[in-house]
Design a protein around this nucleic acid. Structure first.
Lengths: 188, 188
DNA sequence: TCGGGAAGCGGAAAAGCTTTCCGGATAAGT
DNA sequence: ACTTATCCGGAAAGCTTTTCCGCTTCCCGA
């Protein structure tokens, strides 16, 4: 009943696949052929499909990987910046996550059963991270919006025509964050 | 140089295809096989692909057809209801358009080149229709939001998990519309 | 260090979908 | 009725995803 360790070559291939998938998804979109990803990773398609039985499993894995990366930035930002700057910086990363990867944001909101688990993971992972930042900036921020409200609102804003409209997205998110802090500095 | 009329059988098949496509898209989603649609319409796939050279052309055609239907309801609503009710009723149809057809709303916002023409058609067709309704309800409505702002905002709200979250969508749209009229009836 | 065998690998083949093609059918003019 | 441009159907080509299996590689105990 010895729990066998995962073989190192398997782990290596797994990592190579995630990396290759991210690269390909960014350049060719999430609809790129699986073969293209397998080739870039230097493995056969069989290997890809053993690790990720369905195409969508790979997309989910990559997205979760990216979500993790964003969530894990929170502690460092809290330590290195003043609260308001940390918050702003974190949202920059968050918008980057959703706005620069065509198809990722739509997968999140697609309703397709294959992506059903994503929204939950999303909130579970990013909710606490953002909450940490909000807590640290608490006295400069209005109290009637929660972390999940914000994540949701910004995610929807990121849907607006990506690429061309990136400036629009950044502008609207900026407005939203300004609104968030409006009540702080005693205004006229 | 006689401009030959379009053959009636061709027109009949075209109509059958649009009808069948709508039915299939609603029940099986926009990713349903083309064969399924051709079979339901009682034609061969060749016929489908002559009328709609690419799969996405059919999706675009169906969506435009539905957009037209919603746009054309505006005049009748203006005639038959009081302004506020007409507006509310029209938005019910609009939300129905976007929220009950999985994949349609995401196609609209997808950024995929195949759907590039959709947003333009969307605004061109629905913008004036909504404007008519807004004009008729003008004195009960705040003046700092335009027709396009509203179309855009509601379209984004309809993205939220369809099916399960239909109640959420309806609720949020309701809130938005309430906000639209808040300044009308001399408030406390 | 070495040998057995489980775990993993690659790529050929199967399955499924979209798109093309063309011989045959048919509606519309004369 | 006859002619012909137009349209039809479905077989087949071209892609992609997914499965399958013989061969290789790594891990563990001896």
């Amino acid at each position: 009943m010895t729990q066998r360790r995962v073989r190192v070559d398997a782990q290596r291939n797994m990592d190579a696949l995630l990396g290759a998938a991210l690269t390909v998804f960014m350049s060719s979109g999430v609809d790129a052929p699986a073969k293209e990803i397998a080739d870039l990773a230097g493995v056969g398609v069989g290997t890809l499909y053993r690790h990720f039985p369905q195409r969508s499993d790979l997309i989910v894995a990559v997205l979760e990987h990216e979500i993790d990366a964003v969530a894990e930035r929170a502690p460092a930002l809290v330590a290195d910046h003043e609260p308001a700057a940390a918050l702003r910086e974190w949202f920059r990363a968050y918008v980057e996550l959703l706005a620069t990867k065509p198809g990722f944001a739509s997968a999140l909101h697609s309703g397709d059963p294959a992506y059903a688990a994503l929204p939950g993971y999303f909130l579970r992972r990013l909710g606490p991270a953002l909450q940490t930042l909000l807590d640290h900036a608490a006295d400069g921020i209005r109290s009637d919006v929660g972390a999940e409200d914000l994540l949701h609102a910004v995610a929807l804003l990121c849907q607006s025509v990506s690429g061309q409209g990136r400036a629009y997205t950044d502008r609207m998110v900026g407005v939203l964050l300004d609104g968030l802090t409006r009540e702080s500095k005693g205004k006229p």
